[in-house]
């Protein structure tokens, strides 16, 4: 170790400087301390904002928490007139639409990212990436309108055939009204695909050439290089893009409420209308009268926060186990 340090002349020079403990004032003058303080403030502000958010959600949901306790999570009745509130249909709708959206979006997004980063000519790749980044900036109400005017008419033609042949599977049966979990999931998938593509492509491009060259030296085909050297190397970044997409899907409001049907019920069929947490908050908050009603809506916000955290935790756990496999393999 010490040999390696001596081999590079700059390192001993710097380490000498560090050994001689600098005073706080010196570090401030050199700018290190300034940067440290600024970044520290940035880091703290995130903690403070999150803390305030949770505190607010907790305090202003107390009436509802005291009235319903844990039943709030499992009850299916949402009756503002009689003051009975249960969140289960909304939680169910949020989880189902988000997971289905990711199931649709991941293969498309990852496929496109690999194509753009590895296979496409650079000019085409840059042009397409520019378009994809534009897509990410489209307001969600536009995606909702696309859902209503383009997607639903198409689904009205397609779904009857699906139901004719696969109607015996519970997730496809029932009357189809156009608005449904399925329609909402597709709109969500379209919304999150640009995130997955854009971030994953950046990560894939930044994989060092040495990784590819090493694999090629072993006689691998182009696809082998991509799938077995480049993608695993970029896995962390790709997972990051998927987390971001999941967070967007869980919290998306406007586009979902336009195509999900807004019915507080739990259905096995993906063709049935449903509701999500974010949608019901947006729909009912402005006209909510009565403290219990307001507190119930805010408790829904708290539930959404917790659902998002659980999903993040599970995803991180998944990544840890994947790393474990890699070490074993």
């Amino acid at each position: 170790m010490s040999n390696a340090v001596l081999a590079t002349p700059e390192v001993p020079f710097e380490s000498r400087g560090l050994d001689k403990k600098q005073t706080w004032w010196e570090r401030l003058r050199k700018g290190d301390e300034v940067v440290h303080l600024i970044t520290l403030a940035g880091g703290w502000s995130i903690l403070v904002i999150t803390g305030l958010l949770v505190q607010h959600l907790w305090v202003y949901s107390r009436l509802s928490r005291h009235a319903f306790g844990w039943h709030f999570l499992v009850d299916s009745t949402w009756d503002p007139v009689n003051g009975v509130f249960g969140a289960w249909p909304f939680v169910y709708g949020t989880v189902v639409t988000s997971l289905l959206a990711l199931t649709i979006a991941i293969p498309i997004g990852l496929g496109s990212a690999i194509f753009l980063a590895e296979l496409a000519p650079r000019k085409l790749s840059n042009a397409l990436t520019f378009l994809i980044e534009l897509l990410a900036a489209v307001p969600s109400v536009i995606y909702g309108l696309i859902g209503i005017f383009l997607l639903i008419p198409v689904l009205f033609n397609v779904v009857p055939y699906v139901q004719k042949y696969f109607g015996w599977i519970p997730i496809f049966n029932g009357t189809f009204y156009g608005v449904s979990y399925f329609s909402a999931s597709i709109v969500l998938a379209i919304m999150v695909v640009p995130f997955i593509i854009s971030i994953s492509r950046e990560v894939l491009i930044s994989v060092p050439v040495s990784q590819r060259e090493a694999m090629m030296a072993l006689g691998a085909t182009k696809w082998d290089v991509t799938w077995r050297a480049v993608v695993p190397y970029a896995r962390q970044g790709i997972m990051g893009s998927i987390f971001l997409s999941l967070a967007r899907a869980l919290g998306e409001t406007m586009a979902v409420t336009m195509v999900i049907g807004n019915v507080a019920q739990v259905s096995t069929s993906l063709m049935a209308p449903g509701y999500t947490i974010a949608a019901v908050i947006a729909n009912e908050f402005t006209e909510a009268t009565g403290d219990l009603y307001l507190h119930a809506l805010i408790e829904l916000g708290l539930v959404l926060f917790v659902v998002t955290m659980i999903f993040n935790a599970l995803a991180r756990l998944l990544m840890l186990t994947m790393k474990g496999h890699e070490v074993v393999g």
């Binding site: 009745t77 949402w78 009756d79 503002p80 007139v81 009689n82 009975v84 009204y177 608005v179 409420t257 336009m258 049907g261 807004n262 019915v263 507080a264 209308p273 509701y275 729909n283 009912e284 006209e287 909510a288 009268t289």
Partner: peptide
């Protein structure tokens, strides 16, 4: 009666 009620049937439009 209310600005939102527990609908026995139907779809909701915003």
């Amino acid at each position: 009666v209310g600005t939102s009620v527990n609908w026995p049937v139907g779809l909701g439009g915003k």
